[in-house]
Design a protein around this nucleic acid. Structure first.
Lengths: 350, 350
DNA sequence: CTTTAGCACTCCTATCCCCTGAGTGCTAAA
DNA sequence: TTTAGCACTCAGGGGATAGGAGTGCTAAAG
């Protein structure tokens, strides 16, 4: 059943006050904040109802009220005033995005850093590639008698390269035809199939060509392997320790270890959802049961999506974080769109 | 003046006990630990001397003694029994190094992780490249009418590549001669000079060749730029919070922020020093004044050096950490030596 | 001269208790 | 339905107190 407007107003006051102060909110304060139209006794009756309905909680009998996860959820869904960022905040965000960013990984990492500094909570960033990446093109460049460079371009337009060594002499003049072979038989397939196709060719090739071929395929498999992608970058963990709810180390510890050692289990976002707010127990992850996460996504070129998330106490300032994060994500999308080429991204080899 | 053997023995007992317990060590305990040859009163006299000489400290009048940085230093230099790792520890380290590691950055990061798990303290890892990296070779691969792939190989044998877009039509058949030009005029120079040489050629080239040339040079500059190298990876920060000395958040906070947000100022190691122990105030960095750092280096191929460091309380178990870290560094050197090619390293492009 | 037993003393730590104040729930009247 | 009034609850802070670990010093013994 729908709450009365008055109950909602009270819930809103409690939530916003608590977000700011981290202290349970009492009836007297609420009465005053609502302009004194009602006495604190009336508020107390309403508060008792709200507790019974599960929107508020009481740390102990003689304390004020605190929003429950259900309360926060209602607040986020209906009560919260959707803010947009102020000019000043926008400026700050743009500045944070300003630095010249070359390599994609570096950009992702820096985006995380910028987000953390903008929202004052720890943040994480991931580049979520396509589900399945395939090789679009191979090039082989001769280096010396026993080594060559393999250049692999994927169907999402990333290029990686690596110096490969065959321990045995290499027929340099055969490299172009080998590349040809690769481009004919080993493009458009994912990591799981590359190895299989290689098997099929084993018998048909002279040994001195098979070695460089298999090295290249091995390399390409690694490039295209999904598990090698989506690295998660986290920053601003220290911000956590500033929050009063994490003064108690045991709680902080769990979250810290999630943010530093188990990054992979941070929540990701469903395809096509621009932003999501996960409050306390809405998180599947045990360590996040009494924390909240806000995740937004942005586009990196045509085929990739970036994710940027913020972790904070359930008492997080949802309105501000959501506003800043979505502005941030939009800015990133624009940034990647502008240089309609994907931004310069390095690649490296040993 | 040199300490008497007995004073040294006492210092050793105090240090080792304190390392284990984190509690000030009393005279009675010491007497007992030394086999009861001396009474606690005698020990007390010796302790008073050691305090006066600056090797020990007393948290308050009626507390036991704790090693001072000077005391730890003597312990590390003379008293500590240099351990080697146990078979079990060795196995654990080898296992931690086991995972297949492809990209150099990933290896470095994983080395840090492994180190942290092995020593139970936060660890950091850096690949310290040569002071000055230059380009050894360029290749340009045609993609379509307005884009091409630039492949850059550095003199330390890393290969990076990137997709570059000229907004205007590109004379594909000219790419080989352009690469030729690059290889003649733009090799063997560092980031600071590449731009300059480009200037010199401005007038001599038709415009449609100058654009791809300058894009390539710009990219190469970024590849070779020292500041883009030596990224520092940290892990295991949570281990810090487990240490009793960092229960107090304010102290933990400083170190945490060093380890997450100001990684760059973590101590590095002088060339040619295999390992170094920095105790408390021996650290230049203010945030490390009451922490200790152990850093070891290992070789990555011929031209690069990796650094792996551990951060902990001054009360750190130096013997164990030093043993494990040096074994770890040796294993890494061997690992990189074995595949005498540098390990497969990916590179990426947008 | 060194070592040791003895003892008074210091000072940290934990615990209890009490008090205060914020905030409540309930009742009865408006 | 609202409100005033009041008794009640409970967390948190501030001494006071007791306990205990460990010291420094002294004086005697080796």
């Amino acid at each position: 059943m729908e709450l009365t407007a008055r109950k909602k107003e009270i819930l809103k006051v409690v939530t916003e006050q608590y977000i700011g102060s981290a202290e349970p909110v009492g009836s007297k304060f609420i009465a005053q904040a609502m302009g004194g139209r009602l006495s604190s006794a009336t508020i107390r009756n309403e508060l008792a109802d709200l507790v019974e309905l599960g929107y508020l909680e009481q740390p102990h009998t003689s304390a004020g009220r605190v929003p429950s996860p259900k309360g926060y959820r209602l607040y986020v869904n209906e009560l919260m005033e959707r803010r947009s960022v102020s000019d000043q905040e926008a400026a700050q965000i743009n500045e944070a995005l300003g630095g010249q960013m070359r390599e994609l990984d570096a950009i992702i990492a820096q985006a995380g850093q910028a987000a953390a500094s903008i929202v004052s909570y720890p943040a994480y960033a991931v580049a979520a590639g396509k589900e399945r990446v395939t090789v679009r093109r191979y090039d082989l460049l001769s280096v010396d008698s026993s080594s060559f460079i393999a250049v692999v371009m994927t169907d999402d337009s990333r290029v990686k390269s690596q110096l490969l060594h065959t321990q045995v002499p290499l027929p340099a003049d055969q490299l172009p035809s080998l590349a040809n072979l690769l481009n004919t038989h080993f493009t458009g397939v994912g990591p799981e199939e590359l190895g299989g196709r290689l098997m099929g060719l084993t018998s048909q090739l002279p040994a001195e060509l098979f070695l460089p071929l298999s090295l290249t395929i091995e390399y390409a498999t690694a490039v295209v392997d999904r598990s090698a992608q989506n690295q998660v970058y986290t920053t601003g963990q220290t911000q956590l320790l500033r929050q009063p709810e994490f003064q108690d180390l045991s709680r902080a510890n769990e979250l810290m270890s999630l943010l530093t050692d188990r990054k992979d289990s941070l929540p990701v976002l469903d395809e096509n959802t621009p932003m999501q707010i996960l409050i306390g127990p809405e998180n599947v992850n045990e360590a996040l049961k009494d924390a909240s996460v806000v995740v937004a996504s942005y586009d990196i070129g045509e085929n990739m999506r970036g994710l940027i998330g913020v972790v904070g106490p359930t008492r997080m300032d949802y309105a501000a974080v959501a506003a800043r994060l979505s502005y941030f994500a939009e800015s990133l999308t624009k940034m990647f769109g502008k240089n309609n080429q994907l931004p310069p991204k390095e690649d490296e080899q040993s």
